[in-house]
């Protein structure tokens, strides 16, 4: 069984664990809400994160190109860029996938290297997006000032 097969088989448990790890970085009351409310419009943060990490996970299994991850990461990071996270905190959600995987499946070291490289790449892209978002917020402030 290849690593991708193992990941696909454990998709749900890994994603759910990954989701919980991300959401637990919010205060307890908030985390409880984000985890429990399933309606997309009543819980935009939770829904965007859940949908986003599902797509990222799928993308990793299907070995999608880096560019294909961009819009998915963009949706999540746009939110984190307005939520008082430092750059490292904002992108930390990507690394939590490693923890979720380690907890849920047993992987050989050689296989782990490949998947970790992918995760690290996604984190780098995330950082770029985060900086673009912050730049855009500054631009919006300047534009407002001109009015």
């Amino acid at each position: 069984m290849t690593l991708n097969d193992i990941l696909a088989k454990n998709r749900e448990s890994i994603i759910n664990r990954w989701f919980d790890l991300i959401v637990d970085s919010y205060p307890q009351n908030t985390a409880d809400f984000i985890k429990s409310e399933k309606n997309r419009f009543a819980n935009p943060v939770g829904w965007t994160i859940k949908k986003g990490i599902e797509d990222i996970f799928e993308g990793i299994i299907q070995n999608k190109s880096d560019a294909q991850f961009f819009p998915i990461l963009d949706d999540i990071i746009k939110i984190r860029a307005v939520q008082e996270f430092t750059p490292s905190e904002a992108i930390s959600f990507i690394f939590l996938l490693k923890q979720a995987m380690c907890e849920k499946i047993a992987i050989e070291n050689t296989e782990l290297f490949a998947i970790e490289s992918k995760i690290d790449t996604l984190a780098s892209i995330s950082l770029d997006i985060f900086m673009e978002c912050r730049e855009k917020i500054k631009q919006l402030k300047t534009n407002e000032g001109k009015k």
Partner: peptide
């Protein structure tokens, strides 16, 4: 609706924007 509190405005506007995005 000032400019100095843009982060606050963007946060507050997320649920509305999320529905527009849909």
């Amino acid at each position: 609706n000032a400019s100095e509190n843009m982060e606050l405005r963007l946060r507050g506007g997320l649920p509305r924007a999320n529905a527009v995005k849909h």
